[in-house]
Design a protein around this nucleic acid. Sequence first.
DNA 1: AATGAATGAGTGTTCATTCAT
DNA 2: GATGAATGAACACTCATTCAT
Lengths: 211, 211, 211, 211
Amino acid sequence: MTREPKTKAALIEAAIKIFEQKGFQHARVSDIVSAAGVAQGTFYIYFRSKEEIFRESCNGFINQIKEMFIQRTKHLFDGDTADEIIRNLYQVVSDIIDIYQKNLAVAGLLFREGIGNGRLFKEIYEDILSIFLSLIEEQIKKAMSKGFMSIEDTEIASVLLFGLFERSLFYFMLIHQKTDISKLKRIIVDFVLKALSFDYNNQCASMPPIS
Amino acid sequence: MTREPKTKAALIEAAIKIFEQKGFQHARVSDIVSAAGVAQGTFYIYFRSKEEIFRESCNGFINQIKEMFIQRTKHLFDGDTADEIIRNLYQVVSDIIDIYQKNLAVAGLLFREGIGNGRLFKEIYEDILSIFLSLIEEQIKKAMSKGFMSIEDTEIASVLLFGLFERSLFYFMLIHQKTDISKLKRIIVDFVLKALSFDYNNQCASMPPIS
Amino acid sequence: MTREPKTKAALIEAAIKIFEQKGFQHARVSDIVSAAGVAQGTFYIYFRSKEEIFRESCNGFINQIKEMFIQRTKHLFDGDTADEIIRNLYQVVSDIIDIYQKNLAVAGLLFREGIGNGRLFKEIYEDILSIFLSLIEEQIKKAMSKGFMSIEDTEIASVLLFGLFERSLFYFMLIHQKTDISKLKRIIVDFVLKALSFDYNNQCASMPPIS
Amino acid sequence: MTREPKTKAALIEAAIKIFEQKGFQHARVSDIVSAAGVAQGTFYIYFRSKEEIFRESCNGFINQIKEMFIQRTKHLFDGDTADEIIRNLYQVVSDIIDIYQKNLAVAGLLFREGIGNGRLFKEIYEDILSIFLSLIEEQIKKAMSKGFMSIEDTEIASVLLFGLFERSLFYFMLIHQKTDISKLKRIIVDFVLKALSFDYNNQCASMPPIS
DNA sequence: AATGAATGAGTGTTCATTCAT
DNA sequence: GATGAATGAACACTCATTCAT
């Protein structure tokens, strides 16, 4: 386990704070270092540039979501009843939102500042996009093979799902921060399943009482 | 009606081209004026700042979509059969995508560069968001009152729909420009209607053969 | 005739002064612009970089010497008596030294600062070197063909002459500024002619009383 | 006699290599230490500054030439025939060139980088200049007193000789490395002697067959 | 309306040097 | 002696904006 030096962690923490406050463009490296309590030059021991610390600042969040998603979806369709699958899906949605909430500052960075700024965008946002699109598509295909749903074009469906997720979290977490989160989770699951022509069968698809 | 002077139009055209090439941040006013074939100072006769020309560059596109949307949705639920509504909705989706396609450069500006960049974002993107969210929500309420669908929370539904639209067009028009557009239109309509628990009734909801 | 803008000339003049005082490395662009009485940004209208103004500062001097040399040596060996040639050569030497003296600051720049500083050196000094070596060699060959001297290797001779000139002017003009210049001119001519086995014949090679 | 510690020697060796590659200005202390395989801080145990290691890097070469010159010229005019003196002078020239060749990297440093760079120049180059000028002048006076030559101004003559030597070695060793060295040695001796009005008498001044 | 030379505030980055371990 | 993380002063260069013509 390579211990991240304290200084680097302090710089990242400071960077997130400053980027959030001023936006990427208006954040000065000098703001970051003074917030981190280190000297100007120290910054360049750990980061090649302001862009690099931006990227690294986003990584923790991206990786958390990615890993969680991969873990949680492994057994998403292991159950055989619709009910089980609904519960599983709810869990995934719930976890994504929780991670989003715990990393609100970074999420803001990523979806507000990361998009735009030319170079940064291409490397960060489009990466995330392609990673999640393939993860989502994989799950849809699995669901289809298990007979839970029938979709004409899995790529298009994945993109629609991604967009629906990304922008709604962006809106409700960052712009309009007042919604009842557990209601949001429930509605998203329902919306998604219906949109994907999920076969609710004759089972009573009651939402789980999970927080 | 004062016609836009030639010079101003040339500047906007040049700005779109340069913003598209280099992104807002890296586009220089000097790039824009030299692309437009006018002098530095001329720029400031027509625009107060680089931000202003950015905003004005986006306006045509935003207004086209907004006006079309308002016109087309006026009679969206005037029909009484599901089939008519499906046709109407398809028309709206189709028109949005067509306008998007005709303004690809500006759409790219708006959804790539407009998001982010602090000040610009707040003023442009969140404006669009709130305008479209209320327009969408209004339609959903109309649909509910006509008995075509039943939605738990119309605000959340609007946000989900907006996100689904915005990001999917962004993806298929700007990043991954190879999808069969008419198929995309059809699938979006279907996806949206299912997600909104649209009551297809016992009618044969065949998609119209419209281009 | 393209008029050099006043501002550019002022910048070059200021640059020469500042470079002379502080050396290339320690001269700040801000020193130069404030000496020239213009704004920081104005510098970059006329020069791409600090290096570029250095190069341009040297050009006037280099070109003066080069043109004079070419003009003066055209008829260097037109005379048929040794005496005439000695007079002509004296004229060349004298003119070089006069130009050197009139451009002492720039000459100092070139031979003190221009050598070294990696990139600058290669482009400026070695250019001058090759230009003058070929000009000198050409003259030596002419002198040989006219029978005034007999040299084993004209390239080596040119290099020796160039070095002898360059360093002695450097020394007597810039380091040790107290020598009797007309004596120096006379001795250089004599030194050079002897070194090149010039055939003084039986003529009385009295130096001309030219200033 | 305290032997130079290994580390110091490694640093000097590395410094010469890096200075040669990048030039003094662009050589970083960090380049030198990493080439020497030691830590940043170690550098400052042995050298007060980047300038100091530059100076020390040049010292070996300068001292070698100086010592050789002093030794070899002790008996330069001990012989009474011109032939002996020619042989002796050839030996000096030959030894200088050999030392130059064995220290090509350092010689390059000194004559490319050492000149220029303000402070460094004054302390290093002008030192060398004055040392060698006095050594040369001393020899010329000795030669005059022995009746081998007759010179109007020994200082000017010394400067001319120094320049001729320095620049020609610089040129043929560092810029244009293809000349026949033994030919160069022979021609320099001849050039110098003629320039100094050396009295070849009626002796057969055959060059020695030394390599 | 148009010009384009001039402005000058703003900042990312470098790197020689230090010092606690 | 050796380390290497930390320092922080220093500066070239950019470019949106202005304004006299």
